[in-house]
Design a protein around this nucleic acid. Structure first.
Lengths: 188, 188
DNA sequence: ATTAGTCGCAACACGAATGTTGCAAGTCGA
DNA sequence: TCGACTTGCAACATTCGTGTTGCGACTAAT
């Protein structure tokens, strides 16, 4: 991955740039390198020093987010624990990561990079397996369409993470409400 | 609105440009005027003749979409018909409009233009009133949070309209599934 | 303390997108 | 038919974002 290990201060700068990029790009997807640099608190030339092209920066940003995402899912997944428990764990983990890195993760979901696309396809597959098991064990209605279920699930997660001010809210509380709505709906 | 009534062919051109803009921008939000013109089947200079600046074009596009949106909602709204019926009607109408004009309508929802923002706030208010009535009449759980309900509703609509190939699907079938999921969830 | 690495700043080159203009050819409508 | 309107095309000026380079000052690590 890293041909040359960076010096400590350079490492911090890279992190600051990634955070700045997420911040600037989530506010405005067409943000310039100048704005990204400003959000990161560094000079524009410094950004170019670390990421030659804009594409490379976005690439690194999505890669970083994807790695976080995959780890959040993997540590929560289990083939043996009750589906409801896994669903909660996965949701909570994903929310914690996705809140504050919304741009990067949405971007990653539609990435053209084969490696990133593979990871997301992997997660998607895990999700489908979980939902299928949930259906088999009676947690979901037996006639529910798995693809539709996944789309609803993703949609609710996306909605929650889009919320401004979600940063201050408790991820567990959000998770509970999300899963409850997904399973039981809003009707009486 | 229109200081000068356009000639028939000019009118068609304007429509083609708006449709082309929606097409190009939904595929790539950073599409150039050149690409928009190409999608519309006209020369770039013609686009500039009708819309001096890019901003003006996007403005017109969102205004057009907003008008369609407002009409779709208004014709379906009723204070007296059963909430479930209204919910179906509104959803179906909105889906029909929003499918194929996704970019413009998402853009409009966060527009800085006061008039457009007002219309959307208006629709949002109508939505909340409908949901409140639904809750009062026992269609929704009595403890459901209206804002959360609206956010879930919007999220599902957004999800459905994002689907590639939704154009060929039946809006009524999509509506039925959407409303069912919203009210009853996916659980057994 | 020395060395290598890092940053900010200023300046530059380059390309791409935007917006404008003039003109010739074609079209709508009275 | 005739006049006003509209379009496409080519050419142009301008602005803006990108990416590069060199230099002086500072900093981490040995």
């Amino acid at each position: 991955m890293h041909a040359k290990p960076l010096r400590a201060d350079a490492e911090r700068t890279v992190r600051a740039i990634l955070a700045g990029a997420e911040c600037a790009l989530s506010a405005n997807p067409a943000a310039t390198m100048e704005q990204i640099a400003e959000a990161a608190g560094v000079a524009r030339t410094t950004v170019h020093r670390r990421f030659t092209t804009r594409e490379e920066l976005v690439q690194a940003l999505t890669a970083w987010a994807t790695a976080q995402f995959a780890e959040a899912v993997d540590t929560a997944t289990s083939e043996t624990a009750p589906p409801l428990v896994v669903l909660h764990r996965v949701t909570a983990n994903v929310l914690r990561v996705k809140i504050g890195w919304g741009y990067a993760m949405n971007r990653a979901a539609a990435s053209s990079d084969p490696e990133i696309a593979r990871v997301h396809a992997d997660v998607l597959d895990k999700c489908d397996r979980l939902l299928r098991r949930a259906r088999a064990e009676g947690l979901l209605r037996s006639d529910v369409d798995i693809e539709w279920a996944r789309r609803c699930y993703y949609a609710l997660i996306h909605e929650v993470t889009q919320d401004r001010g979600a940063t201050e809210l408790d991820a567990d509380a959000l998770t509970t409400r999300l899963v409850d709505t997904l399973l039981n709906g809003l009707g009486a």
